[in-house]
Amino acid sequence: MTEVAYIDRPSRALYFYAILYLGFLYIPVLFLPMFSFNDNIYIAFPLKGFTTKWYVEMFNNQPMWAALNNSLNVACVSAAIATLLGLLGAKAVTRYRIPGEKPIIFVIMLPMVVPYIIMGVALLILITRLGFDLSLYTVTMAHVLISVPFAMATLIARFEGFDQALEEASVDLGASPLSTFWRVTLPLVFPGVLASFLLCFTISFDEFIMAYFLAGTDPTLPIFIWSQLRFPFRLPGVLALGSLILVVSFVVVFISQWLRRYRVEKTQPGI
């Protein structure tokens, strides 16, 4: 007799595998903060000593702050536009009978599988032929293009997850379709909107290839970091920046999970 159900019985081998897997995932990443505090310009063992000078150097690095600012702007704007387009698109394909719906979805989803380098070259040719200057706007446009499929996928799942009768109930009670969207649809898909925004933000924030082709004189952060790698003495500063980004993303994920759990607990007592 055992107290644990058969399906829940632990397995030693799986524990071992899980630890191995987590190590494989995170140990390389942990090198980043470790070397960022190492008092040596070369990224190599043995560690020489503790220092925070790379962080000081990073804080005084004006071009880096400019690049970070560019990336945040591009990521926020492209994520907002992609999420808005995704929201409208997801509403359309889940709520209306559209002729040629399947091919339309296919075309919208296509950028997910087309290599970015191909799209980057194609957009570069198109934009220069049309006579536009390369700038952060062109990067933003490109990032919208590659983010929309992800926004659509996230939001379609959310739309399909809620009972369409809720929208009908709203209209039945006297709300116009527009009013229904604001008072019922949007509040119910809002977690999806948030998830889509964060996903698109991340996609844009670390996207390199398209930004490399399409950025003009203002680099985004990935391009700036790439340019710094040519100068060995700049590398520790990049590591310091990388470590900070790690910490910030960890805090953001932690807070969002905590908020989500808090809301679930608050709204579902006894479950």
């Binding site: 009972d163 039945d172 009670l173 379709p177």
Partner: peptide, 15 residues
Amino acid sequence: PPHHRPTNMVFQNYA
């Protein structure tokens, strides 16, 4: 349109 009709509905799954 449904939002201007003098009818109201009790839905199967209550909605």
